[in-house]
Nucleic acid binder design. Structure first.
Lengths: 141, 141
DNA sequence: ATGCAAATGATAATCGTTCTTATTTGCGTT
DNA sequence: AACGCAAATAAGAACGATTATCATTTGCAT
């Protein structure tokens, strides 16, 4: 789905590091990765990219619209492949697992509220912090 | 409204730095202040508190339930006096002004979504990033 | 194959925040 | 009012995430 063309179209040379990072997002278990995550996974796979390059590439991909950046609690940035439509997130406070959801009613209401207050929405982020019920989750009773 | 007793009740000695910080939140123009904001304002008023102390005090006040901490885009923490009920925020992308709002429908919907996905909500943050229409705002047409 | 702008990697620098430690302060007790 | 001591502070070192610098390498049009 993401061929080197995607990079070209975005005005970016198709270099090795860029292709590797893109590849990682397409084939990784976890959809949501931090710069550190990407860097470590590349090192583990024997790839040799610099951390600075990872940061640079992630930012470029964000600007090119290939990735979306999120700021979950904790401060560090997390990235995700941009595909399909907007959605919000529920983050498990125990295991860090991220689930996505979309609720039309919430979206509509936001528009309403903003309009009433005299604002023009450009973006928004809704993060629910909760306890999940996955087997892996250390919080499980 | 916030007397030194508030500190005592929270198990905190009523020291000069703590009183000053509390005072600042009660009398400041802007409801939402970062550690840096607090530090600078205190310096400007001739008060002599260390930046480390500001960070410590803010964290303590948060734990004591006197302040709430928010993470707006950009990563840095912003604090606000906790008074009254929960609310969400609209942040102007041009001038940084923060407006508060509460929408029962949005709150209800969040509970619904979380429950359906098997999560138990512990906290959430909804930030709308938009353009405001205040006179001060540099974005104004 | 050649040239050069663009991209990279290593590392220094920056920013927000926390930690460390010696000094000071609040406050209950004389 | 002075004493004592735990708690709190100030200054600066340390830290983690991210960005900037710059010499070297690479993609790619010629």
């Amino acid at each position: 789905m993401h061929q080197p063309d995607h990079l070209k179209n975005a005005g970016l040379k198709s270099t090795l590091p860029r292709l590797k990072v893109l590849d990682l997002f397409e084939n990784s278990e976890e959809r949501h990765l931090s710069a550190e995550d990407v860097y470590k996974q590349l090192l583990t796979s024997g790839e040799d990219v610099g951390l600075a390059t990872v940061y640079r590439v992630l930012t470029q991909f964000e600007q090119a619209g290939l990735l979306v950046r999120h700021h979950f609690e904790g401060g560090k940035s997390v990235f995700e492949l941009k595909q399909g439509e907007h959605h919000d997130h529920i983050v498990c406070m125990q295991c860090g697992h991220v689930e996505e959801f979309y609720d039309a009613a919430i979206e509509t209401r936001q528009e309403k509220v903003a309009t009433e207050l005299g604002f023009a929405i450009r973006d928004h982020s809704l993060h629910i912090y909760a306890d999940c019920t996955r087997k892996k989750c250390p919080h499980r009773r």
